[in-house]
Design a protein around this nucleic acid. Structure first.
Length: 733
DNA sequence: ACCACGATGCTTTTT
DNA sequence: GCATCGTGGT
């Protein structure tokens, strides 16, 4: 085992020509770039230039001839991050950037699986199904198993399976401790059948894109070895968001060489509910004892006041690796205090924020440099109403996505069926769209045949006795699909799809409707045709669309950006508005109920992420009345407000329960009397003593809340610890 | 096959 | 308060 991994940086040959990009970095960034050998954890606080470090590091490795571009693996979480890195790397090193294995975890997963379909138990041309496809499939499976899908939602089953996959478990390896009582204890069967149905359809879901490569590597050491040999350097972005499978994959790929550089910020870990294991970053130096840790703490984004607020807030979390953000050397920033205002209700909050936005705009801040960051998406509604009335331009980021639209999913289903007759989900979606007189009875007959003969629904068409009208309709349908399949090799995708959707009557279906909505759908389909022009093969297109989330936003448009706090991670704005800092909403009650103290810390990190998006000015606010689900709530100001340093705040009309931190009132235009009631924050869960129902154990009373695991005294089963999510509350009235 | 009504259930959602 | 979904009637 001789190799470059034995060398230190000093032993390496000097650069042929000066590597100019190091000069632009601060000492810590420079060190992160130059520490190429061995495991490295870069703790990179918000706004400390981690993308610059990542791209410069790749460029440096190539410039120093430590590796060829294709021997570098760089993984990100979002397409957007991957695209940004690709662009910035391209600007530094030119065309060679295209040879780096740079992409999202899932895309890299697809790439690896496609190269070893046989060993991975797939056929070439496997398809990637979306979350709602998976849900539909699970619904069918559960119904077949005699489970009432109204009472036991397939979406929950899907979450459970996804969480198993995130942790690296196949149907055979789910440990007893993680078994679920959901769906009448049939989750084991459901998972097993789900996987076999996927296999029948030659399909994989999102979780499989990571899990199957892991299994592939575990079962085929030779394949693993070839990748270990290839990837001399591995870089990981947003390491705090990796789940267990991703961690396992990375550890396997890092092999003996262990040239793995993980960049992340434990304080920005906000996706634990999606399977992210913040432990991965916390335990880095346990896993790699020789690991070097570099902290990036020089902040190039925010004012001292914003940094002070963010730092004070996050310091209330336990078990942090610890960082101290400060204004980067050489940046002279005066800055303003962070605004903190209590409003009467949600409407006033929206109106006053709209006014502030207009004021800021007059000062020369473009609308698209301002953002409203909310905890829950329903909060944008109130802002939309007000903005619409005022004629203030806004854009909601991360709402409905292109590929999630009905007509796009339909079109994609047609194409999937063209590529793969076995795609029963696609078949089910479009067989009667447009109407072909194919009702549930016909589908059932097809399913019957398909089941007995082990063939697809599509192939069951000839094998089933059907009434003539249905038979004729299905024959025509089938012919249209098969025609398109014949054309695959010879006709451009765009033309082929147009023909397919015309012949099948799909386009006509929307044209006939002649509503505003249907016109939009036709437009979207045309947009889809444009996209199709960029692809050579159908497979390539389907892979692309399956993993596509963020269409290229029209960032040029001068509109106020509205989004959830989650969606804001990685972005920055001149001015940030943080409304709705109220107990129950932020921190969110549901999070507290289900996750206890752990969840509270994640909520706090969310607040930290929100604050650190702001470059110059942040406005935090809360309302004393808010309409939630129709009824009026009178929430307390968020406990997070008390955790902010008073000296960096300009507070108006905010009354928090703690006397020690009570804010001044009366100096604003909305002055009102100090509160007469004494409030206090609930100690832990507000659910202690409540009566609940559990599927297996029946009724009981909540005794204790231990980090989301509730200790419940069941009337017939005694005391048990159960997850809050498996409990239903009984309202006794 | 379609509409109309009522029951239901509402945090976040990188791929 | 509202949108979505499933049922049951025509």
């Amino acid at each position: 085992m001789s190799g470059i991994f034995d060398l230190t940086d000093d032993d390496l040959p000097p650069l042929q020509e000066e590597f100019p990009f190091l000069a632009e970095l601060n000492p810590q960034q420079k060190e992160a770039v130059k520490t190429t050998q061995g495991p490295l954890l870069v703790l990179s606080g918000a706004g400390t230039g981690k993308t610059r470090v990542l791209t410069t590091r790749i460029a440096y490795i190539i410039a120093k001839n430590l590796a060829f571009p294709w021997e570098i693996l760089a993984v990100t979480f979002t397409n957007k991050a991957a695209r940004e890195m690709q662009e910035r790397l391209g600007a530094m090193i030119g065309g060679e950037a295209g040879s780096v294995w740079l992409g999202t975890f899932h895309r890299i997963g697809v790439k690896i699986l496609s190269r070893h379909t046989l060993e991975a138990g797939l056929n070439p041309n496997f398809i990637i199904i979306s979350t709602d496809d998976a849900e539909r499939l699970l619904k069918n499976i559960m119904t077949d198993l005699g489970i009432d899908v109204k009472k036991h939602k397939p979406a929950i089953a899907q979450e459970i399976i996804a969480s198993w996959k995130d942790k690296g478990y196949t149907p055979n390896t789910v440990p007893a401790t993680l078994k679920s009582t959901f769906a009448m204890n049939k989750m084991d069967d459901i998972y097993k059948i789900y996987q076999s149905k996927l296999k029948d359809m030659n399909a994989v879901d999102f979780g499989d894109l990571l899990l199957l490569p892991l299994i592939l590597f575990q079962q085929h050491p030779d394949i693993l070895a070839s990748y270990q040999k290839q990837f001399k350097y591995i870089l990981v972005d947003e390491y705090q968001d990796t789940n267990t499978v991703q961690y396992l994959l990375l550890r396997l790929l890092a092999g003996q060489r262990k040239n793995i550089c993980c960049v992340g910020d434990d304080d920005q870990s906000i996706y634990s509910w999606r399977g992210a294991e913040v432990e991965n970053i916390l335990q880095f130096s346990k896993i790699f004892p020789e690991a070097k840790i570099i902290r990036l703490e020089q902040n190039y984004r925010s004012t001292p006041q914003i940094l002070a607020c963010a730092s004070a807030l996050i310091s209330h979390n336990n078990g942090r690796l610890g960082k101290n953000l400060y204004v980067a050397d050489g940046r002279a920033v005066v800055g303003e205090k962070v605004g903190l205002t209590g409003y009467w209700n949600g409407l006033e909050e929206a109106e006053k924020i709209a006014e502030l936005i207009v004021q800021e705009h007059h000062k020369g801040i473009p609308l698209n440099a301002m953002a409203i960051l909310v905890r829950a998406s329903f909060q944008t509604r109130e802002f939309e109403d007000v903005f619409m009335r005022m004629g203030l331009a806004y854009k909601i980021i991360g709402g409905f996505k292109f590929y999630e639209r009905e007509e796009i999913k339909d079109a994609v289903a047609y194409l999937r069926l063209v590529l793969n007759s076995g795609d029963d989900l696609a078949f089910g979606r479009i067989v009667n769209k447009p109407r072909r007189g194919i009702g549930p009875a016909v589908i059932e007959a097809l399913q019957e045949t398909a089941m007995h003969k082990h063939i697809s629904l599509f192939d069951a068409i000839q094998e089933t006795q059907l009434r003539p009208s249905a038979q004729k309709a299905l024959d025509t349908f089938q012919e249209t699909i098969l025609n398109a399949r014949k054309e695959l090799e010879i006709t451009p995708l765009q033309t082929l799809t147009k023909t397919l959707l015309t012949q099948s009557g799909y386009i006509a279906m929307w044209q006939q409707e002649k509503t505003l909505e249907s016109e939009g759908k036709i437009e979207n389909l045309n947009e889809l045709f444009n996209v199709l022009a960029d692809f050579k093969t159908l497979q390539e297109f389907l892979d692309h669309i399956a993993l596509l989330t963020d269409e290229d936003e029209e960032e040029e448009a001068d509109k106020v950006q509205m989004m959830t706090l989650h969606a804001s991670k990685g972005l920055e704005f001149s001015t940030v508005f943080l409304p709705g800092w109220e107990e129950g909403l932020f921190p969110h009650q549901k999070a507290l109920d289900e996750g206890g103290e752990t969840a509270l810390e994640e909520e706090r990190r969310l607040a930290y992420v929100g604050l650190t998006r702001a470059r110059f000015k942040a406005f935090i606010s809360c309302a004393s009345s808010r309409r939630v689900y129709g009824s009026w709530q009178h929430p307390l100001p968020s406990r997070f407000l008390e955790e902010l340093p008073k000296e960096h705040l300009e507070a108006v009309n905010v009354f928090t329960p703690s006397k020690m931190h009570a804010f001044e009132w009366g100096d604003g235009p909305l002055a009102m009397a100090p509160p007469t009631k004494v409030f206090s924050y609930p100690k832990k869960s507000s659910r202690l003593g409540r009566r609940v129902f559990h599927e297996t154990f029946g009724q009981g009373t909540i005794l204790r809340d231990d980090h989301g695991r509730l200790e419940v005294h069941f009337d017939n089963f005694g005391v048990k610890k159960v997850m809050a999510r498996f409990l239903e509350e009984i309202t006794e009235d």
